[in-house]
């Protein structure tokens, strides 16, 4: 469904963030993109919906090239691709409902969105999505009144109301505690199954990636160095992606850490 062909990005500063990346994602697949900071994970997913302009190669969604789109065409393509952000990226001074409805901006005209007159069908969807992520009573709260986990749920609802075919997820758990991280990852993968969505999830937490993704892609210095099952992530492969480290120890510590944290965490759903 999604195909990247020799996708490359070189920033004006000279950083070669992506080097001829080839990747194809079938419909309904949840793919985790792992790699050290600066490997180009963030650039890669932003090149897909062109928040970052790729400098070479092509992105095909259902066989249609996205890299040559402009104006209205680009907007139509973007609304087919939902995005979930690191640190939530909610518009903090808007209400939860307005944030969710902002996912419909690609579908409604300017004046309708300016006066907040969204079609009733959009509002129904918004309510059912908020219900699904467990935040219906919060609809009129301002986004900055919510906790981290709640904000990310709003972010998920905002992406899903676009009625996307593909989800781009950028470090969804970067600023969440271990328990909330798992809840959020579970919610994302469940929703992907429910809506038959493909997803590319950038994530630095290897354990979470293995737990929730069907396929893992390892990125290192702008190139793919691993592409396969979660089970195939051996210490050797991890060394190739992240560099030398005692991986068994790291993974053990990570899991015990999260177990310990889970007990004294409160998340008001």
């Amino acid at each position: 469904m999604l195909e990247l062909k020799k996708l490359g990005k070189r920033y004006r500063t000279g950083d070669h963030a992506l080097k001829e990346v080839d990747l194809s994602v079938p419909a309904g697949q949840v793919l985790a993109l792992i790699g050290p900071s600066g490997a180009g994970k963030s650039t890669l997913i932003r090149c897909i919906n062109r928040l970052v302009e790729p400098t070479s190669g092509d992105v095909l969604l259902h066989g249609e090239s996205l890299t040559r789109l402009r104006g209205g065409g680009l907007r139509k393509a973007r609304r087919r691709i939902g995005m979930i952000f690191q640190e939530y990226a909610l518009v903090e001074r808007l209400s939860v409902m307005e944030n969710v409805l902002s996912g419909r901006l690609g579908y409604v005209g300017f004046w309708a969105s300016y006066f907040r007159r969204f079609p009733q069908s959009d509002i129904d969807t918004a309510f059912s999505l908020l219900d699904r992520v467990g935040l219906e009573p919060m609809a009129d709260k301002r986004a900055d009144e919510l906790s981290g986990g709640q904000r990310q749920r709003v972010g998920i609802a905002r992406a899903l109301i676009q009625n996307p075919e593909l989800l781009l997820v950028d470090e969804p758990t970067a600023s969440l505690d271990p328990k909330t991280s798992r809840q959020i990852m579970r919610l994302i993968t469940e929703l992907c199954t429910e809506h038959k969505l493909a997803a590319i999830i950038n994530i630095h937490d290897v354990a979470l990636a293995q737990m929730f993704a069907q396929r893992i892609v390892g990125l290192q210095a702008g190139s793919i160095v691993y592409d396969g099952d979660p089970e195939g992530l051996t210490p050797d492969v991890l060394t190739q992606i992240y560099g030398e480290e005692d991986w068994t120890a790291v993974r053990k510590r990570q899991s015990s850490d999260s177990d310990q944290d889970v007990t004294d965490l409160e998340e008001n759903l």
Partner: peptide, 15 residues
Amino acid sequence: MPIEMNSQEKIWKHR
């Protein structure tokens, strides 16, 4: 509250 029930559907108003 800007959310009102109208027979079947929930109406949401900005204010």
